[in-house]
Design a protein around this nucleic acid. Structure first.
Lengths: 334, 334
DNA sequence: CTGAAAGCGCTTACAG
DNA sequence: CTGAAAGCGCTTACAG
């Protein structure tokens, strides 16, 4: 078996207490003992057992991360930021893929509790009362990512979805578009759905453009749904000059469909996305979109969570800045 | 604090040994005690502490996963398969992003050792002696994903890279192409580099086409490098009718560059990728590519690892089937 | 059918 | 400066 603290204590002729002390630079030992201990640690290739340590410290130095879909580009950008920050601060991350399935979410929350994670990052899903209650019970900090809640003590980090959508549509209008369709995300989604629709409507309104309900379609944020929505738009509202999609994936689905229907983008129709995934730069033409700084959001959320873990204080929610990234899918109408 | 086994024992008027027994359905207690215990567990909302359990069982029910880049589409497809299998078998996964940096790899391996993971999934990187030695020391099973090794007792799961590249180029040749360029991955990469180049060369050879060294360029698997390589090809070898890239990202980079240079794909130039990421379907035109079943590879590797953990046996390596996915970036030359 | 006790590998007062 | 001992929350022989 791997050597334990006992083994090094024996070999170095000291007590395990002393070994523990030099391990943690706690002082209270002579230089000579320190050297002896350090050396036997090396000889034995001793590495402390984090599990034993966790049991006694009631800290596992690990945080749990819940994603609705780990394999989405959205999640992986976030995960990258999270992983970076978390590892640099001596924590590890265990990931759970909830598959936007309420049952699994609850199951995973329980699992994370058993594994005694020190905190939880909860992404892209509304925090149901059921979850909140369990979380309360667990007495560990949580921070929400790209989501929002009114429950006390659970901070979130996200962009202002209303404003971002507003700005996107405003941008389109300023470019001369007036007949603008929207491909929204999941109908009724309180975070990434409704507020973005509101932004769309208010931007139209601010420019005196009447809202046309046949210009509003729904998808589920994924590529295929963007394709489908675009077909509907092309069929029912061919006069539209621009479409704003509530996710890059849907925008790209719309792009493909437009091209397959023989349209040129942006000459015949303009398309604008939402997210600025790595994807957005890769398609042809490169997608104009509103950027969520996902990597940063992941880092900031991690920072807040770790701060809460270590200080016991409640972190403030944070609204990150979005921006419009101009590429080549929107044309100016004169 | 959360209730412990002691709390339920007290409240149920039994010993902790008995609680533990009913927890594990070990038998050796009356129906009445079982009921009493079950009920107090519910009342107290008791959940066992996996850390304490791990300490004594020397099993943490968690596996470590090392990726060179968690945020790549490649890794996330893999991760999805891994997460699915692993959670269904009562394990959790902690992910580590090595950033293709040897130092971090070693550091993470050590971290995973401290955290006492039961096994490790090591992805997309060559297993250096240094890593192997440490892994030996740790005495836990490892399986390699999309990689390969001669070290004993470490199985891998991947596709046959030589054959897959061969088949891709063979496909292109059968479609009538003879002047075929290749955008290889990292020069000297023993897994995803050299074998794919060999496949390219052998396929040409088998059809009596001379290898032209100016048709072979190098990238690093990423989008930007594919763009750059394509520029070189367009400039130095404009007579080329098809390009085979060793990753979808590079293929898509090449695609974008071709289009930006005013070429039509596949009319003016054909492009073929490698991987079949979700991306491949999303671009325009949709990318013809060689498919690696990444989700399945993730699941199979997880299955092998867990089998090794639980049985102590060494799993067999496995070569998964690749296939050619015909989409719209390759034309037939007659 | 049930409980007392040892022990997993650590940390941390406490005493000297 | 150093060590003996208790204890973290469990599991598992062992004894009855």
């Amino acid at each position: 078996m791997n050597p334990t603290i006992k083994d090094v204590a024996q070999k170095a002729n000291v007590s395990i207490a002393t070994v523990s002390r030099v391990l943690h630079n706690l002082g209270g030992y002579s230089d000579k003992t320190k050297q002896k201990v350090d050396q036997t640690i090396k000889e034995l290739k001793y590495q402390p057992n984090a599990i034993a340590r966790g049991l006694i410290n009631k800290r596992t130095q690990t945080i749990g991360v819940l994603f609705p879909d780990v394999s989405s580009a959205f999640s992986s950008d976030l995960l990258h930021g999270i992983d970076e920050f978390v590892h640099n601060h001596n924590y590890s991350v265990v990931v759970c893929n909830t598959d936007q399935d309420g049952k699994r979410t609850l199951k995973y929350l329980q699992l994370l509790r058993e594994k005694q994670v020190d905190g939880i990052l909860f992404s892209s899903e509304a925090l149901k009362k059921e979850y909140y209650d369990l979380l309360e019970d667990m007495r560990i900090p949580v921070v929400l990512i790209s989501s929002q809640t009114d429950f006390p003590n659970v901070p979130y980090v996200k962009i202002n979805d209303f404003q971002a959508a507003y700005d996107a549509v405003d941008y389109l209008i300023i470019k001369g578009h007036r007949r603008i369709a929207m491909i929204s995300g999941t109908r009724g989604d309180p975070i990434a759905g409704t507020p973005r629709i509101e932004g769309y409507r208010k931007a139209l309104e601010a420019h005196g453009i009447a809202f046309n309900s046949s210009y509003l379609t729904y998808g589920d944020f994924m590529y295929e749904s963007g394709s489908r929505a675009m077909k509907t738009i092309l069929q029912k509202a061919p006069e539209v000059t621009a479409v704003f999609a509530a996710s890059d994936e849907m925008a790209i689905g719309a792009l493909s469909t437009a091209i397959q229907h023989g349209l040129n983008v942006p000459e015949d129709i303009s398309i604008m996305g939402y997210d600025d995934l790595r994807l957005a730069r890769m398609v042809n033409p490169p997608l104009t979109t509103v950027r969520q700084p996902l990597h940063d959001i992941g880092m900031i959320a991690s920072e807040k969570l770790i701060h809460m873990i270590e200080s016991g204080e409640i972190a403030q929610s944070q609204i990150c800045a979005h921006s419009i990234v101009e590429r080549q899918t929107v044309r100016t109408i004169t």
